[in-house]
């Protein structure tokens, strides 16, 4: 038979050792999620060789309000969620927390990805959010074929070819003695006969600027090569708002510059470590031999063994086109890079 003080001591001991942790854990994992209407998912970010995002995939319900809390475990990471959500949490320093509360309206697959260079495997650092709609289980969209890439495949265009000028028999180096200027081109274009093809966005996207120069030459036989190149440069970059260009320039700096270089010189700090040397957008002789839809396809599909990652699951087709529009400006005269037409 226990004495009374001894009995009380034992009860207190059991309460402290078992009751206190049970209380705290119970609050954290049972009571708090129950009281909170929004589900919170904690995601820790490490470099891909140390595990990447954890968890790297989860399933949520369409219409469910969700809070995502990101923290970094080693170096500074960045988090953006796409495609089409426009969520960029910016960089997350080790030990800091950034969170976002969001609701997915429709079933589908979304990707959260690191957008600050964090390791040589940085581009592998992605996570998947699968949004299900339990009321309409069939609403989950099937993998959609990108119409632009499908059209290229149907036409037998080799996305990986280094030039797309086709059968044009031209001395391209003579065509482009230096960097074209869209600013000069805007003034020159007024005095030229512009064929309807060149005014058609769809035509421009499926032809190289070099082909544009050849076409323009056939209508304006007396114009100089430099003038034609400038006019074509103007026609190729004329679209897009300044705001889109600023957003796209930032996207380029965060996601492309590490390999392709800040100004498109193909000389980013990671350029020496990729399987294939990143192309230089600042070289007009390369870029003016590329088709817009091929650049689009390359960005969305990735480089297939070149270490160029695919961005098709991260950004929308519209954002990809904006990026292609931005790439043209990198081959122009230095001061026109971000402003495009000026």
């Amino acid at each position: 038979m226990l004495k009374r003080p001894e009995f009380i001591t034992r009860v207190l001991l059991v309460l402290t050792v078992i009751g206190l942790p049970a209380l705290i854990l119970g609050y954290q994992f049972v009571l708090r999620p129950h009281l909170n209407s929004t589900r919170t998912i904690e995601i820790s970010a490490s470099t891909p060789e140390n595990g990447g995002f954890q968890p790297a995939s989860f399933t949520v319900e369409a219409g469910e309000t969700l809070t995502l809390r990101f923290t970094s475990m080693d170096v500074t990471h960045g988090v953006a969620i796409g495609p089409g959500l426009g969520i960029d949490l910016g960089s997350i320093d080790p030990g800091h927390i950034k969170e976002v509360t969001l609701t997915f309206d429709h079933a589908g697959t979304y990707t959260f990805y690191c957008n600050t260079w964090c390791s040589i495997n940085h581009w592998r650092m992605r996570g998947v959010i699968e949004v299900r709609d339990s009321l309409n289980p069939n609403a989950f969209p099937a993998n959609q074929v990108d119409p632009v890439i499908a059209a290229l495949a149907a036409d037998g265009v080799d996305i990986d070819a280094t030039t797309h000028n086709g059968s044009m028999n031209m001395d391209t180096t003579a065509m482009l003695p230096g960097r074209p200027s869209a600013l000069r081109g805007a003034a020159i274009a007024v005095n030229l006969v512009i064929p309807t093809e060149l005014q058609d966005q769809a035509w421009r996207r499926s032809h190289t600027p070099m082909q544009g120069i050849a076409l323009l030459l056939s209508y304006n036989a007396n114009a100089s090569q430099t003038d034609l190149a400038d006019a074509v440069a103007y026609l190729w970059v004329v679209e897009g708002s300044a705001e889109t260009r600023t957003t796209t320039a930032q996207f380029y700096a965060q996601n492309c510059a590490s390999c392709h270089g800040e100004t498109g010189g193909g000389d980013g700090f990671m350029a020496a470590q990729t399987t294939e040397t990143p192309v230089a957008f600042s070289d007009p002789n390369y870029l003016f031999g590329m088709r817009g839809d091929v650049l689009y396809a390359k960005i969305r599909r990735g480089g297939m063994g070149t270490d160029m990652p695919n961005f098709g699951t991260l950004i929308t087709p519209e954002e990809t086109w904006a990026l292609v529009d931005y790439l043209w400006t990198l081959s122009l005269e230095t001061d026109e890079r971000t402003t495009g037409e000026g």
């Binding site: 170096v75 500074t76 260079w117 510059a257």
Partner: peptide
Amino acid sequence: LTASDVVHGFYLDGYGIEQRVEPGIS
């Protein structure tokens, strides 16, 4: 200032200058 792998910062003692540098954005 350029950063060649991860995000770094430059802090100069005495002068109190601080600048954060992200890779690819000098």
